[in-house]
Amino acid sequence: MIVFVRFNSSHGFPVEVDSDTSIFQLKEVVAKRQGVPADQLRVIFAGKELRNDWTVQNCDLDQQSIVHIVQRPWRKGQEMNATGGDDPRNAAGGCEREPQSLTRVDLSSSVLPGDSVGLAVILHTDSRKDSPPAGSPAGRSIYNSFYVYCKGPCQRVQPGKLRVQCSTCRQATLTLTQGPSCWDDVLIPNRMSGECQSPHCPGTSAEFFFKCGAHPTSDKETSVALHLIATNSRNITCITCTDVRSPVLVFQCNSRHVICLDCFHLYCVTRLNDRQFVHDPQLGYSLPCVAGCPNSLIKELHHFRILGEEQYNRYQQYGAEECVLQMGGVLCPRPGCGAGLLPEPDQRKVTCEGGNGLGCGFAFCRECKEAYHEGECSAVFEASGTTTQAYRVDERAAEQARWEAASKETIKKTTKPCPRCHVPVEKNGGCMHMKCPQPQCRLEWCWNCGCEWNRVCMGDHWFDV
């Protein structure tokens, strides 16, 4: 396979590697080409510095992935760790964990309700045991953590790749202090920090972006993250068709209702045909949960890209028209025109101005929308079919299609509260000796007794199943 190397943020060049090629071997190839010592090179990928003893497969490097290699003399205490030698983080029983690669970060837990604080980093599902597709590297999971809308060759929703760059020099040479644990960490600028490894760059702020994971991409090709779309790892039924499908869209209502993408497309087109989208002054033209839940309008309007190009163009047109109407304007009634106009409040005669090729020149009556006339309008008909009709959803289907309910059931079956801080902690095999993952707590306690870890627990039921 081919990976592209950008040395000291210059133009990239291809390097041929195998899945079992080590990072140090990659350094040696680059060092020979650039005429520099291999031990002064640092390989940066997806916000993480890659260790010498890791392989291309370990690092989730795919065909035509772009890695950054910078030349920086080692500072005291760094060289041993980078070589894969006596790194205290690798000691058996050590409590410190390697910062998780962005290629394996899962933010789907952050669609849980606000009262489930902490689960994004504490609760991990076991539903990723799908067998890898044919042709994928051994052991590589097909679980997708992110979804994007690819405006490039795909023109559809695709699995996405999370990447990070330095907000100062805009190069992907920043190593994160810690990985993101929720969508806010990724979507809110300057929320996460790190250290830029580019020479002479003092940058410390992280800037995240997404790429389409279905095809090789260049540095400049980015895609918009659709953070309401998630892999259906909890096997929730769709609120409309009641099938279990994946991926799904999880509405931001209190129940976190789930809808499959085909039904979401149908829901949007139906509402669009009836012009029953909601115009929100802050958000724009949007839709609420299909069950009509309060405070559930979709905030990231790129989710409506699921409509496809033709329907999305209609959505944008109707949204612009609705904006004009909300501002007190009118639409030209001549067939084939429909231009938005903003006449004076007491102006009865409205002319669709033909300047700049935008208007048709038609003069019409503001009251009856017919060709302009003197005197009273002959008839004014009330528009028919403008009443909002509820999208029919079966109550039982709505009850079963809740992301929140599956989460709470998982928590109930696989977790116990920490005796000190009461945060839910998952036990997935292993011994009875637990350690609270909350940095402010870190209590060592017994899963069996529910009390602080002691010699009695150690001698009596340390390794009970």
Rank of each mutant, 00 (worst) to 15 (best):
F364V: 03
R245H: 08
P437S: 07
K76H: 14
G328T: 03
F381D: 05
R170D: 05
I259R: 00
V3W: 02
G94F: 13
L41E: 01
T217R: 07
G430E: 08
L176N: 03
C212T: 02
D184G: 06
R128T: 13
R6Q: 05
D130P: 11
C431H: 08
V350A: 06
F208L: 03
G47K: 00
S116H: 11
Q389N: 15
G12T: 07
P424K: 09
Q197C: 09
Y391W: 15
R420L: 14
A371S: 10
I188V: 11
P424I: 09
C289N: 00
T83K: 11
P424L: 09
V111H: 13
I66S: 06
E98C: 07
R334P: 03
T270P: 02
A31P: 00
I188R: 08
L162V: 08
G359E: 09
H257E: 00
H302Y: 10
P439C: 05
R271F: 06
D20E: 11
E382P: 09
R89W: 13
S181M: 10
D87L: 12
S10Y: 14
C241F: 00
C95R: 13
R348G: 05
A31D: 00
L112P: 13
D126N: 10
Y147E: 00
Q158G: 06
T168F: 07
C421T: 00
G160T: 00
G430A: 15
D126R: 07
D20Y: 05
K76N: 14
K435C: 06
L266Y: 10
R455Q: 15
G284Q: 04
P180T: 00
S286R: 02
R305T: 09
L283C: 09
E395F: 10
G93V: 13
I142A: 12
P437L: 07
G375N: 12
C166M: 00
L307M: 08
T231Q: 10
N313W: 15
I142Y: 09
S109D: 14
P288Y: 05
S193F: 12
Q311V: 05
A91R: 09
G328N: 08
L287C: 03
T103W: 06
R156I: 06
A91Y: 11
C268H: 01
W447G: 03
C431A: 15
E444Q: 15
I236R: 08
E309R: 14
V248F: 01
F208Q: 00
W462F: 15
E409Y: 11
G135W: 09
A320I: 14
T242Q: 15
V111K: 13
F362T: 07
L107H: 14
H279T: 06
Q100L: 11
V29I: 13
F381L: 10
H302C: 10
D394S: 07
C365I: 02
E321Q: 15
D130Y: 08
G12A: 15
I23M: 07
C441A: 00
G354R: 09
M192T: 05
A214I: 08
A339D: 05
P419S: 04
E79V: 10
I306C: 06
C332W: 02
L187Y: 04
E16C: 07
C337H: 03
A390W: 08
A46L: 08
S384W: 06
F13P: 00
D60V: 06
G430H: 15
G292V: 03
C337K: 03
K27L: 03
D394E: 10
P73R: 06
K48E: 03
P424H: 12
G152A: 13
V224M: 12
I411E: 12
K48N: 04
T103K: 12
I229W: 02
K27W: 01
N190C: 08
R392Q: 09
M434D: 01
D62F: 08
E300N: 11
A225F: 03
G12E: 08
V56H: 01
I66R: 04
C241N: 00
Q317W: 06
N295E: 13
G118P: 14
A405E: 15
N81W: 14
T222A: 09
F381Y: 14
K412A: 10
Q252L: 05
Q276C: 12
E300D: 13
G459Q: 15
G12C: 06
N232W: 00
R455H: 15
S19A: 13
F24H: 10
S181I: 06
P216V: 09
H279D: 07
T55N: 06
Q155Y: 07
A46C: 11
R75L: 10
H422Q: 07
W445P: 00
A371V: 10
C377K: 02
E409C: 09
Y149S: 02
N58A: 14
F4Q: 12
Y285E: 01
S19T: 10
Q178L: 06
V36C: 06
I2T: 14
C289Y: 02
Q100H: 11
T125M: 07
R170K: 15
Q57S: 12
N144D: 04
P216T: 10
K435V: 15
C421F: 01
L119A: 15
C289K: 02
G357L: 12
G355S: 14
D464L: 15
R396V: 09
Q63C: 10
T351P: 05
I23F: 02
M458T: 15
Y147G: 01
K349Q: 06
S141P: 07
L162C: 07
F24D: 06
A225C: 06
Q440G: 14
I122S: 15
R191F: 05
A291I: 05
C365L: 02
W453E: 02
C289H: 00
G319F: 06
R305D: 05
L331T: 05
V290L: 06
K427S: 08
L307I: 13
L358K: 15
A383G: 10
P180I: 02
F45R: 06
P288V: 03
S181G: 10
R245Y: 04
N58P: 01
R42T: 12
G139N: 13
C150W: 01
A31E: 05
Q252Y: 04
N254Q: 14
G328F: 03
A383Y: 12
R89S: 13
C293H: 00
R128E: 14
R191A: 09
T125Y: 07
R163N: 13
K413R: 12
H227R: 14
P113N: 09
R256T: 05
S193Y: 11
C431I: 11
C368W: 02
S110E: 13
E300T: 07
C457G: 02
P99M: 14
L283P: 02
S218E: 13
R305K: 12
C457K: 01
F45L: 08
N144G: 06
M434F: 04
Q40D: 15
S181Y: 04
K427G: 09
I229Q: 02
E452S: 15
I306K: 00
K349G: 06
C95A: 13
F264L: 04
T168G: 06
K416M: 12
F304T: 00
S136E: 14
P437Q: 09
V29P: 00
S22F: 04
N313V: 08
C263V: 01
A390H: 13
D460F: 06
G319Y: 07
Y285R: 02
R33M: 10
N313T: 10
L226A: 02
G152C: 06
G375H: 04
Y312I: 03
Q171G: 10
S286F: 00
E49T: 02
H11A: 05
V269T: 05
Q440P: 08
N295P: 00
C169Q: 00
S127G: 12
G357K: 14
C446E: 00
G213W: 05
N90F: 14
C169N: 01
C196H: 01
V117Y: 12
N254A: 14
V30P: 00
E370I: 04
V70M: 04
A398R: 13
K151N: 15
P73H: 07
C332F: 02
A320R: 10
C241V: 00
N295T: 06
Y267D: 00
G359T: 13
W54A: 13
T410C: 10
V67P: 00
N235Q: 10
S193C: 06
V324L: 07
Y391Q: 06
E221I: 06
V278D: 08
D185L: 00
Q171I: 06
R271V: 05
D87S: 13
L443W: 05
V224S: 10
K412E: 10
Y143F: 15
P37V: 07
G336P: 05
A363T: 15
A398T: 10
C449T: 01
I411S: 13
E382L: 14
H68K: 01
R140H: 10
T173M: 06
R89N: 14
S181A: 13
R402W: 03
V15P: 00
Q158S: 08
C260W: 00
A138I: 12
D219P: 09
L176I: 08
G450D: 04
V330S: 05
P294Y: 06
V17H: 00
V224P: 13
L61M: 11
